[in-house]
């Protein structure tokens, strides 16, 4: 039992329990609290999987940004303290059963696959050279510069052969996402602008 295993177990348990508590709890702010626990532990799992940058983005955007926004919305839209909107028990039982069935289906599908040889199979099927030895994805989470260069359209991990070919990074998606964010910003500001409440 080394340190990695201890933390993996810890984060796994808290992520799964957090997700379950989100489903079970009825108060919206408590849901948000459990969602923080869940997403925070997921960020921890990303750090363990040597994806430091993704983990930090998860903390900054999801937990520090999106969830704060959610709680703001809860406060702006609740008509009384600790608002609860109950779901009928029949629906809960039905949803729980379907959820369990779905979980078993996903797990059965996942355990039925041999994950060991995926690398070579991906390489065969897609005719991409697997990454050469110069790039080690697990290099202690130092993935910041490769990610940045990939977003600029260069692929350091695919070696020199890939640059200039079909696999030239993610410059176009990056630009599309940035324009998309601008559109969303304008759209959200337009939708949420202060209007006089309709007299009802």
């Amino acid at each position: 039992m080394n340190g990695e295993a201890v933390f993996f177990t810890l984060f796994t348990v808290s992520a799964c329990l957090g997700a379950l508590a989100v489903v079970v709890s009825q108060n919206v702010v408590r849901m948000a609290f459990w969602l923080i626990i869940c997403l925070g532990s997921t960020a921890g799992l990303f750090f363990l999987a040597d994806a430091d940058f993704v983990g930090a983005v998860q903390l900054l955007i999801y937990v520090g940004g999106t969830l704060v926004l959610l709680v703001f919305a809860v406060m702006l839209t609740s008509s009384g303290p600790y608002v609860k909107i109950e779901t009928s028990p029949g629906e809960v039982i039905l949803a729980g059963m379907i959820g369990l069935l779905f979980l078993f289906m996903v797990i059965a599908a996942q355990t039925g696959i041999d994950w060991e040889g995926t690398g070579s199979r991906i390489a065969e099927a897609s005719e991409i050279d697997p990454p050469d030895g110069t790039f080690d994805t697990g290099a202690e989470g130092h993935t910041l510069r490769p990610i940045g260069m990939s977003l600029l359209g260069l692929r350091p991990d695919r070696g020199a052969a890939a640059s200039g070919t079909l696999f030239t990074g993610y410059l176009l998606p990056f630009e599309i996402v940035s324009v998309h964010l601008l559109v969303v910003l304008v759209g959200a500001a337009y939708l949420a602008r202060a209007k006089r409440r309709r007299e009802a």
Binding site: D52, F53, G55, A56, V57, L59, G141, H142, L144
Partner: peptide, 10 residues
């Protein structure tokens, strides 16, 4: 960490 400042702000 390679993204130290970013992690800190996050």
């Amino acid at each position: 960490a390679d993204s130290g400042l970013f992690i800190m702000l996050a």
